[in-house]
Design a protein around this nucleic acid. Structure first.
Length: 985
RNA sequence: GCUCGGAUGGUGGAAUUGGUAGACACGUUGGACUUAAAAUCCAAUGAUCAGCAACGGUCGUGCGGGUUCAAGUCCCGCUCCGAGUACCA
């Protein structure tokens, strides 16, 4: 019988489904193990060959753990809300739920044919109301919580209200908005309920705030950074402007320190942890307050600036809540500029200040003479994306506001500039510029001819700034003169605090996360508004279902798509979604309120789904206490490193929050995490002559001006030649295209390695391979491609090698007449020691490889094993039966079939993993490489227990050694027993 | 720009973590079987020089330095490629 993989695979996939082989139980005496994949977004392009890479790896591990006797939870589901389905809906009018459903169906078929051991009874979909009910519920919990910096955890908002009513907010140290004012208990109690709500919003873990979005006036819509190319919208090419909008935010910054510190507790790759650390980026320094001088005369005042300052404080003096985000007043009132600096020791080197163009003070302080210039600059920079501004360090631009701030110590006037190298969302959106110590400040100063004051001792700054820290000695700086960095830093902070112009502060780069999307296809917020104040729908009435709309575009007024829903009001008496109240009737005004029009972002549903899998059918709670206590958290999580700072940070944040509020018992969601490298596509390009519909073959371009256009990779053969006829039919615009071909008539395309995506026409599906070679081949081939964590371009060139291996493997068990199944049941005879050695060598290596997630090398090991056993003509059951189990995690279908043929009943999935026995591998000799000056010349087989001296003696006595030495006397002979001999001289 | 990865034959990659560079595959070439093809099996295969011959010589892990008896592996300085960069998921 030959290896009919299609038949075998279908048979066992059916068997697994019917017998629910991989269904995990929530009560078991076995030890638990939770293996999870980052769940897919079901895109219209279907599953591509990159997706299974991680799934195969985790499946191998899950299957391995089952063999090892664990109760394994290995679920799968879909992150089914998202932008592509919405875009498709906009184009076609088809409801995204329908396309999503279709895409999921296709994904499921594709996943099933690869033979994964998923427990499908636990599938989740983020767009399912039964699922997003709990996403909404968690949102409400976040809204009903605040972060207590003293207790270092989230607490119910009701606690906070109690504290306010008994003692005000003076003693409260909480994560809150920057502009929170201080009030007493009496004041609080006198507040109207609306005022109270307003104050509480400044403390809640999810809150409303003005944040910037990419706005396209022509489309009336907001775009993702992803949808912007060179400052214009990808679709339509309309200009994009940054605009402020009131949106929900998540106070993730409250967790910055814990998110950073707890990285030490989890088993993730160092590089990934480092990415998160850099993303959070803790910096210790000071907040410094610069007073803005009122109107400034043409010549700076020389006398009594203090009087002026005092006056400002009397006029605009702020009573800010002591504890903005911690322990100081970081507030920006209309006449002071707060800056955060990690180098307060360089404060005497300040020669100007730079504000972000969006900084709210810009408008207020700009002098009439400078107004035109500033306005123009602000407008110009609104057109540049944040990323563009960060990336572009070559172009130096800025404008002078005409206003001056006062140096806190010298009282000298400091000109205030704006420049787009300062970002509004980062820190306070303002910097104190120290050109001698910061390269960007230096370049800015040079460019605009602003003086550069050197405050570093014995350092030349004529060419560039001096950014050294540890060796810096401060000079020309009043009380800091002569101090090294280490002493100057605390001293500067101390002095700032003394004069009330600053405070030591720890700052984090991590910003609060914007949680609103002006989209249709996402979770609706369980929020309605009474007099503009957000109110939560009672938990009892969740889920708040996504309403139907006629079109998935924003409204004519620029409202999000939900603004098109006919009935999108909340009736607080009936607790249901209703039509808008009749105008003028006044009747319903006290119990019918508008619902939130934004929806939640893609990461909402994916920030907690790993808990839902534990108890997917629970109607009472997002996960029951027992289920969560049993499964705890994910033991092994596999997914792409592109999620390093998004999904993986948000999930940690939500988990910590749920932990604080005692809804789960773990502080981290994923104990161990492995990144799978991305499988990249090999895009194909055709070259169109500029302005013509003529395509020129790659090798003939030679300096002609051409346009590169993606061609579908399925239209290109292995020799990079384009199927011209198919290409013409591919898109109508190419129907009449002309082609300039090579001499042999072929059109050669260009190739480039890029991320696989529908828009690049380079997506390769696994379906064809499953049909042609089988799932077991696909599984092993994807592992054989290289190290799991490494990115690699997809290429099927070597797949026959893996397929041949499986055929050989099959043959080992079919050595009977007519290739029928045969194994030798008799006990191993003399000479089968080689078989045992091969088997145990394989057990050892494969097991070590699985534990190390080095799957590519275990595939090689299997190949070597089969090659050896074939050479040994091995037919022993004693060898072949354990080998089936060993291979089962990698190639489960063939393993099941052989397991059955070997006479076993039931699935191989729970068979006990073979145990490696050292005794079969003991060696008595070693083939020593003998090197001369580090170069290997020959090998010598010597007993392993030979002493160092004897090895040296034997090697030196060898004639080959003497020949190599050619009469010289070696200076030194290095012998590492069991390893190497090196003769120097 | 910044952060995190990566670079080894014609190709994918291996290398016990400082100890025989190129395992295992693909591809290529030659051979066996066959009327022929497919399939299968066997052999060779980093480059280069030399030769009737070999346990022959030289070079060789992106580039330039360094440490060491010994470097793909460690250190310093670069180049190129990929990912992320806060509204793709």
């Amino acid at each position: 019988m030959s290896y009919h993989f299609n038949k075998i695979e279908e048979k066992w996939q059916k068997y697994w489904a019917q017998n629910q082989t991989f269904k995990a139980s929530n009560s078991s005496s076995k030890e638990k193990f939770y293996v999870l994949d980052m769940f897919p977004y079901p895109s219209g392009a279907g599953l591509h060959v990159g997706h299974p890479l991680g799934y195969i790896a985790s499946d191998i591990y899950a299957r391995y753990k089952r063999h090892k006797g664990f109760n394994v939870l290995h679920p799968q589901g879909y992150d089914s809300f998202g932008l592509p389905a919405e875009q498709y809906a906009i184009q076609t009018g088809q409801h995204p739920a329908l396309t999503t459903e279709e895409n999921i169906k296709r994904y499921r078929e594709q996943l099933d044919q690869i033979g994964f051991s998923f427990d499908w009874s636990r599938e989740v979909r983020t767009s399912d109301p039964e699922y997003y009910k709990w996403t909404q519920w968690i949102f409400i919990q976040l809204f009903e919580s605040w972060y207590d910096n003293k207790a270092e955890k989230a607490r119910p908002i009701t606690d906070l209200e109690q504290i306010f009513s008994s003692e005000g907010n003076k003693e409260v140290i909480a994560a809150s908005d920057e502009d929170t004012e201080i009030f007493s208990a009496a004041q609080w109690n006198a507040f109207s309920s609306e005022e109270k709500q307003q104050v509480l919003l400044k403390y809640r873990l999810t809150y409303l705030a003005e944040t910037e979005v990419n706005w396209v006036p022509q489309l009336g819509t907001v775009l993702a950074n992803d949808e912007i190319v060179n400052g214009v919208s990808e679709r339509g090419g309309y200009p994009v402007v940054r605009k402020k909008m009131t949106q929900w935010s998540m106070r993730i910054s409250a967790y910055a320190e814990r998110l950073r510190a707890d990285l030490d507790k989890i088993d993730w790759s160092e590089s990934l942890k480092e990415s998160q650390r850099n993303w959070i980026e803790k910096s210790v320094g000071a907040m410094v307050k610069f007073n803005v001088l009122p109107s400034f005369p043409s010549s700076p005042p020389q006398h009594s600036p203090k009087v002026v300052t005092r006056k400002i404080f009397e006029e605009f003096g702020s009573l800010s809540a002591g504890e903005g985000r911690g322990e100081d007043d970081t507030q920006i009132d209309n006449k002071t500029i707060s800056v955060f600096t990690t180098r307060p020791d360089t404060i005497f080197g300040v020669t100007f200040m730079t504000l972000a163009p969006e900084h709210e003070l810009v408008e207020k302080i700009t002098t009439p003479e400078q107004k035109a210039e500033i306005d123009a600059y602000v407008q110009a920079s609104a057109k540049r994306s944040e990323r563009e501004r960060m990336a572009d360090v070559k172009t130096i631009s800025g404008a002078f506001t005409g206003a001056y701030a006062e140096h806190p110590f010298t009282k000298e006037p400091v000109p205030i500039w704006i420049g787009d190298y300062v970002l509004a969302g980062y820190g306070t959106g303002a910097v104190m510029a120290v050109p001698c110590g910061d390269q960007r400040d230096y370049d800015f100063a040079k460019h605009f001819n602003i003086p550069i004051k050197n405050i570093f001792q014995d350092v030349d700054i004529s060419e560039e700034a001096y950014t050294g820290k540890e060796e810096a000695v401060i000079t020309d700086s009043d009380f800091l003169t002569g101090l090294p960095y280490k002493e100057a830093l605390p001293r500067a902070i101390e002095e700032l605090e003394k004069i009330g112009q600053g405070k030591g502060k720890t700052n984090y780069r991590l910003r609060d996360a914007v949680f609103s999307r002006q989209r249709y296809w996402g979770e609706p917020f369980p929020v309605y508004y009474v007099n503009g104040m957000p109110q939560m729908i009672d938990e009892k009435y969740l889920p708040l279902r996504l309403p139907d709309v006629e079109k998935y575009l924003p409204t004519e007024e620029g409202e999000p798509p939900l603004g098109r829903a006919k009935d999108w009001y909340w009736n607080t008496e009936t607790n249901e979604v209703v039509s808008p109240p009749l105008e003028g009737s006044g009747e319903e005004e006290d119990h019918v309120f508008p619902l939130e029009l934004n929806t939640m972002p893609g990461w909402a549903g994916s920030s907690w789904y790993f808990f839902r899998y534990m108890d997917v059918e629970n109607q009472e709670r997002f996960v029951s206490e027992e289920a969560q206590k049993y499964w705890e958290n994910v033991d092994l999580y596999i997914g792409g490193s592109e999620h390093a700072t998004g999904h993986l940070l948000y999930s940690r944040f939500w988990t910590k929050f749920l932990y604080d509020r005692q809804m789960v018992t773990v502080e981290e969601p994923f104990k161990k995490l492995i990144n799978q490298g991305m499988i990249l596509g090999q895009s194909a390009f055709v070259y169109r002559l500029e302005g013509e519909n003529t395509f020129i073959s790659k090798n003939l371009i030679e300096g002609q001006s051409v346009q590169m256009i993606h061609a579908d990779v399925s239209l290109v053969n292995f020799s990079d030649e384009l199927d011209i006829a198919e290409f013409k039919q591919w898109r109508p615009e190419f129907e009449d295209a002309e082609f300039i071909t090579e001499e042999n008539g072929a059109y050669v395309v260009g190739r480039e390695v890029e991320k696989m995506s529908k828009s690049k026409y380079n997506v390769v599906n696994p379906d064809e391979i499953c049909k042609q070679y089988g799932a077991d081949t696909l599984r092993m081939y994807e592992m054989f491609l290289g190290p799991l964590e490494q990115a690699k371009p997809w290429n099927t060139a070597g797949i026959t090698g893996v397929h041949n291996f499986l055929k050989k493997f099959w043959k080992l068990y079919h050595t009977g007449s007519n290739n029928s199944f045969y194994v030798n049941d008799s006990p191993p005879s003399e000479g089968s020691g080689e078989n045992l050695k091969t088997l145990h060598k394989t057990i050892k290596k494969v097991t070590e490889d699985i534990e190390d997630f080095s799957f590519n090398t275990s595939v090689s090991t299997f190949m070597i094993c089969v090659n050896e056993l074939m050479a040994q003509k091995c037919d022993q059951r004693e060898i072949l039966e354990p080998l089936v189990i060993l291979l089962a995690p990698y190639a489960p279908h063939i393993a099941e079939e052989l397991w059955e043929e070997l006479g076993n009943s039931g699935s191989v999935a729970t068979a006990t993993y073979p145990v490696y026995e050292e005794k079969f591998l003991v060696e008595s000799t070693k083939l020593y490489p003998v090197s001369f000056n580090g170069k290997m010349r020959f090998t010598m087989e010597l007993p392993l227990d030979m002493s160092r001296e004897e090895v040296e003696k034997t090697v030196m006595a060898d004639e080959r050694t003497q020949k190599q030495l050619n009469g010289r006397t070696p200076k030194k002979v290095i012998v590492v027993p069991g390893k190497i001999v090196n003769i120097v001289g």
